[in-house]
Amino acid sequence: MIWLTWRQFRAQTLAAGGALVLLALYLVYLGNEIRAFYDSRIANCAADACFIARLDLRAEYGDAVLGVGAALIAVPALIGIFWGAPLVTRELEERTDRLAWNQSVTRTRWLAVKLTVIGLASAVLTGLFSLLLTWSASRYDQVIGERFAALSFDSRNIVPIGYGLFAFVLGTVVGMIVRRTIPAMAITLAVFATLQLLVPTMVRQNLMPPVTKTVTVDSSVMNRGVGLNLKQDNTFEIRGYTVPGGWPLEEASPLYKPDGSPYTGDDAKPCLANAGDLADGFACTAAQNLHFEYTYQPANRYWSFQWIELALYVGITALLAGFGFFWLRRRV
């Protein structure tokens, strides 16, 4: 069965391997370019030169890193569409299921070997792609510091392995139920894309309880590019504050005075008189001892989130596979 599976699957394997080799060559080139930029302009920079260098790094390589990351997120979807969905439907549509599932090779054994061999290929393909991209973009990620951003998190380290496994088994099970290749492909893509939108926006941030801390608005906070926004109710909120490497869960936080009451436009009038001098305005605001509540996921939880989400997808994949065996034996 393993040899037969390889014979049937070798064209897809060779095509995927060839694409991965070409991609590896580009990622090695991109990684070396980013490292050269880092060594020449960022490694020993100081003050304003570092700020400008970071902007130039994002401008020069940001689109390339994001583009390759988006391609990696698309790979599991393609695996589900072209490897998973036709796996059973092809046998049913071509009427070869009775020949494939004969007395010496039961349908259960047939499916087990197919899921194991092709599932392993799916994990290896996405894992190698992710490993290459993680290495290539490591200096970029180190400087820009957005590892929790949806596109970055989904395309780095170990999480893509879970996506590849899940998409393949999802396509296989959908194909069993639908029994038609094209509809199965469409449904697989729709389900996988929906899940990839829901998990980063609604599920991931709740995998671990967030941390909330009280931040005092001092000169170090004011000099980190934050902005104060006056709302319609005449109270202020602060925007743009981040903890290095962390994942902020709120775009803005209400600003409070030392007694806990909201900071209002009337309270800000003394500092607005110094608006012509930015440094004096910052110093005036910092002297008012303001504070706000900041809710976030700390940077040291990154790998915990990676392992939890990988385990989540592997668990769902195992449940789908179990359902697939049941459906194949009882319904197909």
Rank of each mutant, 00 (worst) to 15 (best):
A47C: 00
F153G: 10
L55C: 00
V105L: 06
A112W: 06
G69V: 06
Q142S: 13
R98D: 13
V105C: 03
R98W: 04
D48Y: 08
L99C: 02
T134W: 01
V124M: 05
A43R: 14
F37W: 02
I73P: 00
G69F: 02
T108R: 12
L133S: 08
L99Y: 07
Y38C: 02
A47K: 11
I81G: 03
K114S: 13
W101L: 10
S40K: 15
A46Y: 12
F148A: 01
G62L: 03
E93Y: 04
I81C: 10
A53Y: 00
I42F: 05
V117A: 11
A77E: 06
R147G: 10
A149I: 05
D154G: 15
D154C: 04
W135L: 12
F82Y: 15
Y61E: 09
D63H: 11
R95A: 10
A36C: 02
A64D: 04
V75L: 12
D97R: 03
E60F: 06
E93N: 06
L72R: 09
T106N: 06
V143C: 05
T96S: 12
A137H: 09
C45V: 05
F148Q: 02
R147K: 12
V113P: 07
Q142H: 13
S130T: 12
E60D: 09
A150P: 13
R107K: 14
A150L: 06
V124C: 05
I42Y: 05
D154H: 14
V124Q: 01
D63C: 00
